[in-house]
Amino acid sequence: MNGAAHDLKAVAARALACLDLTNLNDDCSEADVQALCARAMTPHGPTAAVCIWPRFVPVAKKALAGNGIRIATVVAFPGGDDETSEVLDMTERAVAEGADEIDMVIPYKALMEGHANAVHSAVARVKEAAGRARVKAILETGVLGDAALIRQAAELAIEGGADFIKTSTGKVPVNATPEAARIMLEVIRDSGEMVGFKPAGGIRTTADAAMYLELCDEIMGPDWASPAVFRIGASSVLEALIATIEGRDGGVASAGGY
């Protein structure tokens, strides 16, 4: 085995351990969630978490009992403009039913209209409602577009108490990009806070995953990116990572997925 192949296998194993294996498809069923949970315990170790709709948290809780894989769910998803009371109720219920992590969409449309306070307030209130659960603030960077706006969103989310900042919902035309990732990682670094980073949407190959790990290594340091502070939001990349680990073609993603 040559050095490059060995390095790529190591990268794939590192990425697999940081994967939030995701099914946020509109037609997701209980059977799909059970299958997702089974996939999360791979022959090469578990993924970090599964990420599912709130109604399926009890299903995942039962399927994952005792194996250490975390349960993430979404609120204010995908638009970021749901009624605050509904978002907080959903957050509390999801945590009570077993969610370990809450991926919330910030009110990015309000931010684009100049209402910066809305972001800080929304994150702070969800953080309080989440209690013991960690909160990942989804910025929807592909819609924000402008670098200064992405930076502002990241700063406001961190000031509001987010445990992670996440690029995207995976539900818009432009999702995770290296440009947005760089901005977000620089904000995390400059904040001095223990905040994680999650690129999501459009990550389908081992090379895609490697690119984000390399950015983390460059900006945050080579020992920073671990499941505690780095996640990849995807489903279609899992088979590519496994193929790379097993010495098969890791450049081809499985069909479909988030």
Rank of each mutant, 00 (worst) to 15 (best):
E140M: 03
E101T: 08
D82A: 14
S121F: 02
A122K: 10
N67S: 11
M112K: 12
Y108W: 01
D82E: 12
A72K: 04
P78E: 08
F77T: 08
A76N: 15
P78R: 06
E83F: 05
V135M: 06
V74H: 00
R125I: 00
V126H: 08
M90G: 15
I102K: 07
A118S: 15
S121T: 13
E83C: 02
V119F: 05
I106M: 13
S85F: 03
D103L: 03
V75E: 07
A116G: 09
A76G: 13
E97Y: 02
A110D: 13
D82Q: 14
P78V: 10
E128Y: 01
D81Y: 00
T141G: 12
D89P: 00
R93H: 05
M104E: 08
D103N: 12
E83G: 00
L111H: 08
A124C: 02
V126D: 11
P78A: 13
M90Q: 15
I138G: 10
E92P: 05
I71T: 09
I71A: 05
A96C: 08
G80D: 04
G79T: 12
E86M: 09
E140I: 11
E128Q: 13
P107G: 14
S121D: 14
V105T: 15
D89N: 14
A76F: 03
V123L: 08
G68C: 03
E92N: 06
N67D: 09
S121P: 00
E97N: 15
I71S: 05
M90F: 01
A124S: 15
K109R: 15
A72W: 02
K109Q: 13
P78L: 08
D103V: 05
E128V: 12
V105M: 14
P107A: 15
Y108L: 02
T73E: 09
E101I: 09
V95F: 03
G79W: 01
P78N: 11
E92C: 11
A94T: 06
M90Y: 01
E97C: 11
K127N: 01
T141C: 15
V123K: 09
K136C: 09
G80R: 04
T84K: 09
E101N: 10
K136F: 10
E128T: 11
D103C: 06
A72P: 03
R125H: 04
S121K: 12
L88V: 12
I69A: 05
V87M: 12
K127H: 01
A72E: 06
E83N: 08
E101M: 08
S85G: 04
A94K: 02
A129L: 02
M112S: 13
L111D: 11
R93F: 01
I69S: 05
N117K: 14
R125F: 00
D81M: 11
T84Y: 00
M112H: 00
S85A: 14
G80L: 04
I102V: 11
A99L: 06
V74K: 03
N67V: 12
A124D: 02
G79R: 09
T91L: 03
T91Y: 01
A137D: 04
E113L: 12
R134H: 04
E97M: 12
Y108R: 02
H120T: 15
E101Y: 08
R125Y: 00
R134G: 02
L111M: 10
S85E: 14
A137F: 02
A129N: 07
G98C: 05
H120Y: 10
A118T: 14
V105K: 14
E101L: 10
T91F: 04
